[in-house]
Amino acid sequence: NDEAKKEAEKLWKNNKSEDEIKERLERAGISPDEAEQWLQELR
């Protein structure tokens, strides 16, 4: 999970869309709710 979150953070810094980041997190096995929460922390 931490690995996926690091990846999400990297994508965020590269200005990827939130949808793309969420999709990537969900593919890594993170629930949509958790993915949404993680994005809010990044904002």
Rank of each mutant, 00 (worst) to 15 (best):
Q40R: 13
Q37K: 13
Q37A: 12
E41Y: 14
S17V: 02
E18C: 13
E34F: 05
N1E: 10
N14T: 09
S31C: 15
K10S: 08
W38C: 00
W38N: 00
G29E: 03
L25N: 01
P32S: 10
I30N: 01
A4W: 15
E26P: 00
A4R: 07
E34N: 04
N1F: 14
W38F: 12
E26N: 08
K6C: 15
L25K: 00
A4Y: 09
D2R: 10
K16I: 14
K5G: 01
E3L: 11
K5T: 03
K16G: 11
L42Y: 05
N15G: 15
E9R: 14
S31W: 03
E23F: 08
D19S: 12
D33Y: 11
E20S: 04
E7T: 08
S31G: 07
D33Q: 12
S31A: 08
E34W: 04
K13Y: 11
E20W: 07
N15F: 10
R24A: 15
E9L: 14
D33H: 10
E41R: 14
D2P: 08
E18P: 08
D2M: 13
A35R: 03
R27P: 03
E23N: 07
D33A: 12
S17A: 05
A8K: 01
R24C: 15
L42T: 03
L39V: 06
D2A: 12
W12I: 01
R43Y: 05
I30L: 10
A4S: 05
W38Q: 00
E3M: 11
W38P: 00
R43K: 11
D33I: 10
E36Y: 07
L42F: 14
R43C: 08
E36W: 10
R24Y: 15
R24F: 15
R27Y: 09
E34H: 04
L25E: 00
N1D: 09
A35H: 03
K13I: 08
L11K: 02
E9I: 13
Q40E: 10
I30F: 11
I21S: 00
E41I: 11
N14F: 08
Q37L: 12
D33G: 08
E7R: 04
E26Y: 15
E20Q: 06
Q40Y: 10
I30G: 01
P32T: 08
E18Q: 05
K10D: 09
I30D: 02
W12E: 00
E7M: 15
N1I: 14
D33R: 10
R24H: 15
E7Q: 06
L25Q: 00
A4V: 09
E26D: 06
K16D: 04
I30M: 13
W38S: 01
E23L: 13
N15D: 06
A35Y: 09
D33M: 11
K13F: 10
W12Y: 11
E7G: 04
E26R: 14
E3K: 10
E20R: 03
P32N: 08
E36G: 03
K5L: 08
R43N: 03
L42E: 01
A8R: 03
Q37M: 11
W38D: 00
E20L: 06
K10N: 10
S31H: 09
N1T: 13
A35P: 00
S31K: 08
P32G: 07
E7V: 09
R27C: 12
G29A: 02
K16C: 15
E18D: 10
K13A: 10
E41W: 15
E23V: 06
E41P: 00
I21V: 06
E9V: 11
K10W: 14
S31V: 02
E20H: 03
E18A: 10
S17Q: 04
E18G: 04
Q37T: 08
S31I: 02
